[in-house]
């Protein structure tokens, strides 16, 4: 996958995030780092920066001094108690006395597990430095934040993303049109992972990458066409709307929670719904969201939500 192929190996090849990269470089030169938190939106180079830092510190064999744990997959307190502690405790043999533990997607760690981490961070500072990575630093508990140097990553600016994508398409010998580039930025913002994946999927179609190609890839890749589903419901076509819902859930495996989040976002963007109704419907969305959290059936509950949109459509048509 191109995202991996073109992941920078060293800090000096990282795109933008200049202030952060400069500070990290100075850590590497000083051969010492504090515990860090890397926070910021997806696909902006957080994990990359952590890996690059380790590479620049330890050289090619950096993997021997590094452990990557992903809190989304191993979020429980036992991971901290066992895996982390065992790793943190043991001294390494290199010139640099400490190892690095990358705790990725740390905002998914339970707060118990985070509490357990506090101790470990202090007791084993000598042998192990932590890099916590999260989308929102707010989900990391205060005591841990206070032990770490914070780094805020931001979406990459348009020029940087464009330049990087151009560089990739040249190396891969695919023809990337200006419009296509435009479209990728339009849908991916500065999320470089998404942008590169989109580029590769578009390239797989074997044609010059125009904006149509990009949109057709996005259409195929993100079937979350919530707007169309709502529209069908508002027009009174329950069966059609339910079919759309099923397509998302069954064919594309979109989670109910994602669908409801999108509905909520879409609701406030829709121009043809009176403001008052947006608020009324938001209440319905919230109710269904709550029911899903309490373990009710995704499809049935979302169907019930569609029925509420049908009612809204009827009332709105009546009042003209």
């Amino acid at each position: 996958m191109w995202v991996e192929k073109y992941r920078p190996r060293s800090l000096k090849s990282m795109v933008n995030q200049k202030d952060i990269v400069e500070r990290l470089k100075s850590f590497a030169e000083a051969r010492n780092i504090p515990h860090c938190i890397f926070a910021g939106p997806p696909g902006t180079g957080k994990t990359t920066a952590a890996l690059c830092l380790a590479h620049d510190l330890y050289g090619e064999a950096y993997r021997e001094h590094l452990m990557e744990l992903n809190a989304s997959d191993e979020r429980g307190i036992n991971v901290v108690r066992q895996t982390v502690k065992t790793f943190a405790r043991v001294r390494t043999l290199g010139e640099i006395p400490f190892k690095i533990l990358i705790l990725d997607e740390a905002d998914n760690m339970t707060s118990d597990a985070q509490q357990a981490l506090r101790r470990t961070m202090e007791r084993f500072t000598g042998t192990c430095r932590l890099i916590l990575i999260a989308n929102y630093s707010g989900k990391i508990i205060e005591p841990i934040q206070s032990r770490c140097a914070p780094f805020r990553f931001t979406y990459l600016p348009r020029e940087d993303q464009d330049a990087y994508l151009r560089h990739i398409s040249e190396s891969e010998k695919v023809q990337l049109e200006a419009e296509g580039l435009n479209a990728i930025y339009e849908v991916c913002g500065g999320d470089l992972r998404r942008a590169i994946n989109t580029l590769q999927a578009a390239a797989s179609l074997g044609k010059p990458i125009s904006n149509e190609i990009v949109y057709s890839v996005i259409g195929r890749a993100n079937p979350l066409d919530v707007r169309e589903m709502i529209q069908l419901a508002m027009n009174g076509n329950f069966i059609g709307a339910r079919d759309k819902l099923r397509e998302m859930i069954v064919k594309y495996g979109v989670a109910g929670s994602d669908i409801i989040r999108q509905i909520h976002r879409e609701l406030f963007r829709m121009r043809d719904i009176p403001e008052l109704w947006k608020v009324k419907l938001a209440d319905a969305v919230g109710e269904i969201d709550y029911r899903l959290i309490s373990g009710a059936d995704e499809e049935v509950q979302l169907s019930a939500l569609l029925a509420r949109f049908i009612e809204a459509g009827i009332t709105m048509r009546r009042s003209g």
Partner: peptide, 22 residues
């Protein structure tokens, strides 16, 4: 996850759709 430095859960939303197209 084993290859791309991302959680298995995230990988499903961030990679699967594009892999499908490819």
């Amino acid at each position: 996850k084993r290859r791309c430095h991302i959680s298995a859960a995230e990988a499903i939303t961030e990679f699967l759709p594009y892999l499908r197209v490819i």
